[in-house]
Each structure stands twice: as C-alpha cells, then as structure tokens.
Design a protein around this nucleic acid. Structure first.
Lengths: 239, 239
DNA sequence: AACAGAAGGAGAGCAGTGCTCTCGAAAACT
DNA sequence: AGTTTTCGAGAGCACTGCTCTCCTTCTGTT
C-alpha cells in the first residue's frame, strides 16, 4: 500500500484500473445526485442503484458515507478552485485589482448558483459529527489562495499601511499571515477577511432563501454588493 | 401563568391545555436535541422516546417532521430576535450608531456560538425539499428589523446621501425599502445589506470550520471584523 | 345524565436508510 | 499450480419518517 515505493501513478493491472474507474463512477454518480437532492439526503444505496451494483459493494470503495462526502468535498473544492483560478488568470491587467476582485466574486457566485447543493456542501452547515480530514483542506485553499495572491499584489503595488489592529488580533491571524504572505500588513489581511466573509454571506443569504422578499433582481443586487465589499475600495477611493 | 387571563387565546378545556403543554414539550425536547445532533439528524422517534410516548402520537401534534422543523425555526428566530432586540434597547446613547451595530453583531455571534446547531438551522443550508412557510418569515424579520431601525436612525441623524446605485439596483431592492423605510437612501440600504452579509458570512465561516488554521483567537478576530463591517464606518470616518 | 362524535394514545407495519456480516468467484501474487 | 487478496452479491440489523388500525378518553349536545 505504500505510495512512495510505487512510482508509477497509473495503475497497470486490470483490477487497479477497474477500481480507479469505478471509484470515479461512484463520485460522479454521487455528484449527479447532489444536483437534485442535497448533501443530507445523499444515499449510498441510490448511488449503488444508479450504477447497478449492490449497496454493499460501494463500501469496498468508500468505507462510509462520510468518506464519500469527503470525496465530494474535494471534488467540489477543486472544481470551484480551478474555475476561479482560470478566471483570475484571464484578467489581462494584473494591476486592476478591483476587476480581479469582481471577477473572483462573480465566479464564486456563478458557480454557487449553478451548483447550489455543491455550494451548500462546501459552505453550508456541515454534516454533524463529521469534521473534514486533512485531505480536504488543500483543495479548500485553492479559491482563497487566489484571494491571497490578489492581496499580495495589492500590497506590492500600493503603499504599505501601518498595522492599525490591536496586538491580540495580530497574534490571532498568524495563520492567515502564513498563508497569504508576510508582506501583507494586518489591515489588508483583515480587509480581505471582511471581503471574503461578505462574499460568502451574500451568496449564502441568497441561495438559502433569506432574500426572497427583499431582492428581486439578484444579479444587479449582487453586483452592487460586490463593489461595496471590495477589499480595495478604500484604497481605490483614496487615490 | 399570565395566559390564564380571560383572553380568548387561553385554552379552557383540559384537553386543549394538555395539547398546548405537550406541543411545547415536543418543541422543547426537539430543541434540546438540536443542541447535540444537528437539524438533519433530528429524529421524531427520539423526541417521542424522550417524552415517553409512541412515535405515532407525535404526529397528532406535528403532521410531519418538516412541520416540527418549522416550529423550531420559529422558536430559534424568536429567541435570537428577542435577544438582539433587548440588547439594542439597552444601549442608552441611541445616537452611538457604531456601538449599536457592534452590539447587534456581538449578540448574533454570541447566540450562534452558544447554539451552533440552532444557528445552522436558521442560517445554514436549508433542509432540501423544504421551503419555509409564511409563519416563519415574521419571526425571521425580528433581528433584521433591529438593523432596519438602526439604519433609519442613521439616516435621520446624518445627511441623506444621494442614491449612487444604478437604477436596476434601486428597482431590485424595493422589498428592502418597504421593510426598512423610504427615508433611507439606496446607498445606506446597500451598506446595511453588505454589513449583514458580512456578519452572517463571518459567523458561518467560523462555526462551519473554515477558519480552523487561519484564526486562533476568534473573539478578537471577530471584534476587529465587526468594526470593518460596520455600515456606519464611512460616515463616521468622514465626520 | 346519556350519548354520538371528536381527539389522542399505542402498536404494527411499510419502505427506506447506513452499515456489517458471510459466501463464493475472480484476479493477483508466488 | 497453488495461495492469497480483492471484490461483488445477498441477507440481515438497527434505525428512520410515516400510515393505518384499534381502542380509550374526553367534549359538546340533547
């Protein structure tokens, strides 16, 4: 089972190939169900039925329903992450930080609206008694990684603000600093955190039905909100 | 009990009193379970077991599990709403709008941290195939109602900004305007929406485990974030 | 006070779930 | 070729939401 001795990633034996194929099929079928039914209602037996196999056979590939959900978590994070990464790299003017923020926000919301149950799995209430294992945190950081790079570029372009946050806050966000980079000051890190919080909150409120009687045109509303939430707004406004 | 006064709401017959009592007991037991197990795992049979009755008897009071969840939704919204209302009214200086915003935010987060599963029920991913009936939207507006009053007071105290939002946005948020009041201009309404989005997003990210490796001292971090999210920040900073 | 009818409890039962076992067959390794 | 691992299938357990029937108890009316 040791992966370090197995240099060849591609499985050679027929059985290993079949296993990889079926593992993918199971995840695909489960994600297909996620498009209809929501994470809590996702059923191992329904996946088995969809693939024409016995439900017990699925457990040869995923030892529990939670492990299957973990795979879906990874899949969703990776899909969202690659969408955001691609869109950000498509912005030609790298110094147009506002546009890059808008692109990131539009991307995340666009993907969330297109895959509401996947978004609910990623950013909604977690399944109780289940904490994400280490394998999911790496894909989860891809989309926030794009934001981190943006913050770095903002810090590199503009003048570095003095850290105006209390020492307790500075100490508390060392994890963010390690992830983003030490050249980004506390104020900008917190601005990014506020922007990210606002983005996730706005999408969650919309998708989870908290704006039904408040907002009619969600596209226009979100676009305006995105401008307000931009971490660069004060800096851009100050020029 | 004050219910025994001769208002027609008070049930007079023994059976009606027993029904009201048992209905309350069921909701209480369900909310007690919510403190441990999460909305999706909430079990009607477990409630019945807790109360020492047959599971089928519970269906005499709540025709389905979703109806029970609706009652929990109402109960949670009312509890959170009354907490926030009380805290806001305890702020003596009504013109200290920043303090009132901070109080609101601290209240919501404090309640959410104390009742994570209740918060997940209210603001997390909704149970699939279930849309909240009309009876829940009134309690749901209590906490946002406090924010609405705050925005009204800000608008009344400060100079009215010109609506700088596009016409499409103005048309889209007529629902918010009707709820908040026409004297609040578009810009302030959107600032309130952004602040509320950021608040819900920040709490959701914390409670749903998205800050595990990023933030160590959540209290200090949230306090700083709350200042950044304040809808009055630009106005206060501009004075 | 007597009685028809409504209300509510208990239990059995149905269809579904996650998950665990055993058993036999097929593939892989030696 | 023989041995060991791998994997599919099926039965089964404990649990769920929910329905149906049966029967007791309470209620409003005569």
């Amino acid at each position: 089972m040791d992966l370090d001795t197995d240099h060849r990633r591609a499985p050679r034996t027929a059985r290993a190939m079949a296993r990889a194929e079926l593992t993918r099929d199971i995840v695909d079928s489960a994600r297909k169900q996620l498009g209809v039914v929501g994470p809590a209602q996702l059923s191992v037996r329904a996946v088995a039925r969809d693939l024409g196999m016995a439900s017990s056979a699925v457990y040869r590939y995923f030892p529990s329903r939670d492990h299957l959900l973990t795979a879906l978590l990874e899949s969703g994070y990776n899909e969202l992450g690659s969408v955001v990464e691609e869109a950000d790299s498509a912005v030609v003017d790298r110094n147009d930080h506002l546009l890059r923020w808008l692109t990131l926000g539009r991307c995340v919301r666009g993907w969330a609206v297109a895959h509401p149950y996947d978004y609910a799995l990623l950013f909604g209430s977690p399944v109780p008694g289940y904490d994400a294992p280490q394998s999911t945190i790496q894909p989860a950081t891809r989309v926030t990684g794009v934001l981190a790079v943006l913050l770095r570029d903002i810090a590199a372009a503009g003048p570095v603000q003095q850290p105006v946050v209390p020492a307790a806050v500075h100490r508390s966000i060392t994890g963010m600093h390690e992830f983003i980079g030490t050249e980004v000051d506390d104020g900008l890190v917190m601005a990014g955190a506020a922007a990210w919080s606002g983005l996730i909150g706005a999408i969650s409120l919309e998708l989870f039905g908290h704006l039904v009687n408040a907002v009619s045109d969600h596209d226009a509303y979100f676009e305006e909100l995105l401008h307000l939430l931009a971490p660069t707004s004060d800096r851009l406004a100050a020029h």
